[in-house]
Design a protein around this nucleic acid. Structure first.
Length: 275
DNA sequence: TACATATGATCAT
DNA sequence: TGATCCTATGTAA
């Protein structure tokens, strides 16, 4: 179940066995893509590029594979032949260094590299929170755009057109890190709070990438781990922690519905003023 | 077998 | 906002 950080880590792994190598074998499960197999085999793989939650694999000769894992897709890498599994194989790419297999995903396209931006999902993506060129000023500028001023943060943080990468666990964790109620809108926030939100949005997303999903404060996570807590107990501050005491103030974490499940601390994340 | 749920996204209303 | 699609998994019946 992948958000931006998980996809980027997956891309790193793919990169290590695919990039710069010749594709010795390419297999697509969908018949509509079969004609591309022979076309891609023998070509060198130029790069693996994560964009938001999408994965792009660029081949020499300007052909690229686009895939999106949705909730259930998963890339796996094997040194040799993939083992037996009940999972549905969707893409297989073999190089001299190993075999990469995409399981279960159903969103797969092959396009000339220059035409990727015409794919609707890629066309609408906002700045990638894990992109090389992004910084807090970029996120802040995004937050200040008039078209987003009256959208609830709970909605904005899932909108890949606003910022690419965050998903449902990052939404809750970012809002907690910024100490903001999910129903607040950018237009409700003063300059100082907007800056805090921008920096926390970046920080928590980058942390999730670096730590393979631990969004909690690193020192708190280490303390909890030493005290015998399991991964599920220390990795998040609020996500999936309904009823449990807030690590900051002890108030029970609340689960609310904002399109999907959202977790927050009713004490640390003050309600918006009525209006 | 059936149903609910999931770190996602689109479309209809 | 709600319905729907995609696939896998866990629990209930």
């Amino acid at each position: 179940m992948p958000e931006g950080p998980e996809i980027r880590r997956s891309a790193d792994t793919l990169q290590s066995i695919l990039a710069g190598r010749k594709a010795l074998g390419v297999r697509f499960a969908f018949s509509r893509l079969r004609s591309h197999q022979a076309r891609l085999e023998g070509r060198r793989i130029r790069a693996v590029e994560p964009r938001g939650k999408a994965m792009l694999i660029h081949f020499a000769g300007d052909l690229s594979i686009y895939s999106h894992n949705q909730l259930y897709g998963e890339w796996r890498v094997f040194p040799g032949a993939p083992p037996e599994t009940h999972l549905q194989e969707r893409i297989l790419i073999r190089t001299g260094a190993g075999t990469a297999v995409l399981y279960s995903a159903s969103e797969i396209e092959v396009r000339p590299t220059g035409e990727l931006d015409f794919l609707p999902y890629l066309a609408k993506l906002g700045p990638d929170l894990l992109g090389a060129d992004i910084d807090a000023a970029t996120v802040l500028a995004r937050l200040r755009e008039p078209r987003y001023a009256r959208r609830a943060l709970a909605s904005l943080l899932l909108d890949q057109g606003f910022l690419a990468g965050p998903g449902n666990y990052l939404r809750s964790e970012i809002l907690f890190a910024a100490r903001l109620h999910p129903d607040l809108r950018p237009g409700d926030l003063d300059a100082a709070r907007l800056r805090v939100l921008a920096t926390r949005t970046l920080r928590i997303t980058r942390r999730a990438y670096r730590t393979a999903g631990i969004t909690n404060d690193p020192r708190l996570a280490a303390r909890l781990r030493q005290a015998g807590a399991g991964f599920e107990e220390y990795r998040h501050a609020v996500f999936e922690r309904a009823q449990l005491p807030c690590y900051a103030c002890g108030t029970p974490i609340r689960r609310i519905e904002r399109g999907r499940a959202l977790f927050h601390c009713p004490q640390c994340q003050a309600r918006p003023p009525a209006s």
